[in-house]
Design a protein around this nucleic acid. Sequence first.
DNA 1: TTGAAATATGAACAGATATTCATATATTCA
DNA 2: TGAATATATGAATATCTGTTCATATTTCAA
Lengths: 100, 100
Amino acid sequence: MENKEMIPDIEMLFELADLFKVFGDSTRLRIMYTLFDGEMSVGDIAESLNLEQSTISHQLRVLRTNKLVKIRRDGRQIYYGLDDDHVKKIIEMGLDHVLE
Amino acid sequence: MENKEMIPDIEMLFELADLFKVFGDSTRLRIMYTLFDGEMSVGDIAESLNLEQSTISHQLRVLRTNKLVKIRRDGRQIYYGLDDDHVKKIIEMGLDHVLE
DNA sequence: TTGAAATATGAACAGATATTCATATATTCA
DNA sequence: TGAATATATGAATATCTGTTCATATTTCAA
């Protein structure tokens, strides 16, 4: 079944705006990009981006709420990884545009 | 030349966040979607979305600043259209995700 | 050139949101 | 159990952003 003309109703566009809103923050975007290579613990993400643990934790929650990352607990660490291949694709599609 | 692993630096991710920010507003998204079928005057967009002319005008400026729409003047009307096929693609890619 | 129509712009305001700080919760290990 | 480590959470604050209202600008037509 091919991807015919999509006919999003208004509500769908509101949802879509909410999705893009999540991508529209550099901290969250950097977190997601960091996870391109695979899952990482909260502390490692924070260190890698040189941001506070609390900042990362708050933003990870946003990402998780929007089903863009998923978690795996291992001992007292929690590993976050991209939930979906779509995440990579959306970011790469955006990069295409940024790169002209 | 194929699309090898992209290696965006931090600054590029900031730019990308700014791009997604533009898509992350329902008014702007609805405007862009309205333009899927072709260019439209400011007034017609406003009427079509049942929003104030001023609101539309302000948001069109944001879209234009970010090179997502382009204009064509005809008499005292100004027609706005999508600047780029990327716009459609980015929105459709997002819709894919919203539709699960 | 004057009036009307279309669009743009600026200021003000309200609502949203990201970060920080302090602290709570959860888990492991001794 | 108690200390230490990893993560989460809540409140406070500062900043950003979208809309509205009023008005300016541009263009056409008479």
